[in-house]
């Protein structure tokens, strides 16, 4: 324990090229009245400084639960983490004490939520809430903290920041509130930001502003960014690499360009095919048949098999591992992996 205590606070901007955060074989379960809900079933992913990892999935895919586990904000119980490691700069956060985790959370890892209004305290002014970060974590005086708050609001391009610092959350529009959330996440200059559907609640034109801002700040601070979303468009716009989740597992991992060009998992392919395209006007859209799985009763074998057009017997009995994908000539495709028994046929067919 003492070793961890000394090692867990790294020098802030050290970048040794290794992953900032690494999730290894993470499992999360919820005990409910109806039984055990296996929300996350062995997730592996990592993100480096300055890199954007998009975690793509539908509701119930486990993408948000994984993020909450990383942040340490899962309600336990009902949630339990029976297995897995979450390494932040090589240290397993799951083995740390509450105090140690609390220090990492907020200072080194920050999170942005979908619903900015409910994430902000309605009875405290925005400036106070932003300043609180500095008062609590850095022991600043009230006046300094307020000045810092204004500076942050400027940085996230809130017009007339000095005049609005004493306004309350409800006085801001949705887009502005999300900027305030970003400002709050940035306050202590974290190494990693986890953004859980940060623009889903926003209008398209505002969405673009907020995503641009986030990408710009990420570059500026050389942060890692985990972007959790269901929107294939947003992912294509900002991600470096993508992890596609289905029923609590990562089914495919790939650099962004590769994934859209040649998906290696039938689920990814189905998602991409079901986007309406111009030449499909007047025709039926491709639709993945069936429904997302009930996490109480995840199908045996590959969880996607009841909905998969290519499923064979092996898919119903054997869980496919997330393995690398090779080019037709046998050379390894860098950064690519797929959890499909027929990954080769899928990517090349």
């Amino acid at each position: 324990m003492t070793i961890i205590e000394e090692a867990f606070v790294p020098s802030p901007r050290e970048d040794n090229g290794g992953p900032l955060l690494e999730v290894r074989d993470l499992h999360v379960e919820f005990r409910t009245r109806e039984g055990v809900v296996r929300a996350v079933n062995g997730v592996n992913y990592s993100v480096k400084a300055g890199e954007t990892l998009a975690v793509l999935g539908e509701s119930g895919s486990g993408k948000s639960v994984t993020a909450q586990a990383i942040m340490g904000i899962l309600d336990m119980p009902p949630a339990t983490i029976p297995q897995g490691e979450i390494l932040f700069r090589g240290q397993d956060m799951l083995k740390m004490s509450g105090e140690e985790r609390r220090k990492i959370r907020g200072q080194r890892i920050a999170m942005i939520f979908q619903d900015a209004l409910s994430s902000l305290n309605p009875v405290l002014s925005v400036g106070y809430q932003l300043g609180e970060m500095f008062r609590v974590h850095q022991g600043m005086s009230k006046k300094d903290a307020k000045a810092k708050a204004i500076e942050l609001m400027d940085r996230v391009k809130i017009p007339a920041a000095a005049a609005r610092v004493n306004d309350y959350p409800h006085q801001f529009s949705g887009g502005m509130r999300q900027r305030i959330m970003i400002a709050m996440a940035l306050a202590l200059e974290p190494d990693l930001i986890i953004a859980d559907e940060p623009t889903t609640a926003l209008d398209v034109t505002v969405q673009a502003q907020v995503m641009d801002l986030l990408a710009e700040l990420q570059r500026e601070y050389n942060m890692g960014l985990i972007l959790i979303t269901h929107d294939l468009g947003v992912v294509a716009d900002v991600a470096d690499k993508i992890a596609v989740m289905y029923a609590g597992r990562i089914v495919e991992r790939a650099p962004v360009h590769e994934l859209y060009k040649r998906p290696a998992h039938p689920y990814t392919r189905g998602l991409l095919d079901s986007i309406p395209r111009l030449d499909q006007k007047g025709q039926e859209l491709y639709a993945i048949k069936g429904l997302p799985p009930n996490l109480l009763r995840i199908p045996s074998g590959c969880a996607f098999n009841p909905r998969c057009p290519k499923a064979e017997d092996v898919c119903r009995t054997e869980v496919p591992d997330l393995l690398g994908v090779t080019e037709q000539d046998g050379s390894e495709l860098v950064g690519r992996a797929s959890a499909c028994h027929f990954r080769k046929e899928t990517i090349h067919g």
Binding site: A287, G290, L291, P306
Partner: peptide, 23 residues
Amino acid sequence: MPDMTKSGTVTAAPDAVGAAAPA
């Protein structure tokens, strides 16, 4: 989903199989 058209029988449409019923 061409197979989703009227079947007229009591068999479930393909997407209805394994519905969200508790058990």
